[in-house]
């Protein structure tokens, strides 16, 4: 069994990727712990940018089943139209027209169940791919990459997560921004969730949305405040009032931002930031050790 840590934020640009990649690389310093990083931000996976010597070891295509209507067999009864939750089917009996719009279709299969005339044909349409990389550190990186134009983020994330071996000691899921279905798919089964927030008005607003979501799901979570020094102190007040654990703070640093822009986020980083990660890791260690099934860990 792997210990699954998800990194999410609500607001974009708070530092999910930075925290994910840093934790992944730092966990590597612990001998004998197998860690895999999984980039679930399938619309724009960018963890790979920070592994300049990574090698692609495998690519697997992911498809969705898309239905089509055989108008020879269709009796234009409109039963499939009633079954379709996504308004993807147009059936016009008067002009003998029946069509499924693939961009609205969610591949749920309800139309096949509805059809009594065997008029629904299925074909496979690619929605993206899963890329596996070997990295210098740990058990490597896996990412989902959505096909341009596809709206099947959630399905691709689900398939990506299914492919990750449970033989890892730790799996880090880097979530997409936002609080919608792709985020829920990424975080819902994690053992621990790290919310990366920034101390700004927007940062706090979106953190509140995220906290409401994770409380609804019922996940154990803590907050890392990134870019400390920007904005104001309202976020601290919020965390205290809501009894939310502050896992660590990462100071805002122009020097670090320029290193980041050059693709360097883990090596030559300012001492204060290095220290922040050490503290976050120490807290995480305690979480993992208290987690049931912790006997798998070789600390």
């Amino acid at each position: 069994m792997s210990y699954k840590i998800a990194i999410a934020s609500g607001k974009g640009g708070t530092g999910k990727t930075t925290v994910s990649v840093n934790l992944f690389k730092r966990l590597n310093e612990r001998q004998g712990t197998k860690v895999q990083l999984v980039d679930c931000d399938v619309e724009e996976p960018n963890d790979i940018i920070f592994f300049c010597d990574a090698e692609v070891i495998d690519v697997q295509e992911v498809s969705q089943k898309v239905p089509e209507i055989d108008s020879e067999k269709c009796t234009f009864c409109r039963k499939c139209v009633e079954y379709c939750e996504f308004n993807a089917i147009v059936v016009l009996p008067t002009v003998s027209f029946a069509e499924i719009n693939p961009t609205l279709c969610h591949s749920c299969g309800a139309c096949s169940v509805a059809c009594e005339d065997d008029a629904i044909i299925k074909y496979y349409k690619p929605i993206g791919a899963i890329h596996y990389y070997k990295t210098k550190e740990n058990n490597g990186l896996a990412e989902g990459k959505l096909e341009i134009g596809s709206t099947m983020q959630t399905k691709l994330i689900r398939e990506l997560k299914k492919k990750i071996s449970d033989q890892n000691d730790i799996i880090i899921y880097d979530a997409p921004p936002g609080t919608s279905c792709p985020v829920v798919e990424t975080i819902h089964d994690s053992d621990y969730l790290i919310l990366v927030a920034e101390p700004t008005l927007f940062g706090l607003h979106d953190l509140k949305l995220m906290v409401a979501l994770v409380r609804e799901i019922g996940l154990e979570f803590g907050v890392v405040i990134n870019k400390v020094g920007l904005g104001d102190n309202d976020i601290y007040e919020y965390l205290v009032n809501e009894h939310i654990e502050l896992l660590g703070e990462i100071p805002f640093s122009k020097e670090y931002a320029s290193l980041y822009a050059e693709g360097e986020i883990t090596g030559e980083i300012p001492e204060t930031i290095h220290q922040s990660y050490t503290e976050i890791l120490d807290t995480l260690n305690l979480k993992m050790m208290h987690h049931e099934g912790n006997h798998h860990f070789k600390w």
Binding site: F86, N87, A88, V90, V91, L92, T94, V95, F97, N101, L104
Partner: peptide, 21 residues
């Protein structure tokens, strides 16, 4: 009837229009 549909409101409206000739 599709003013609050999550998806496909336009498609359904167009279907209705064609259906009404």
């Amino acid at each position: 009837t599709n003013t609050n549909a999550n998806n496909g409101a336009g498609t359904k409206a167009a279907e209705r229009i064609v259906d009404m000739n």
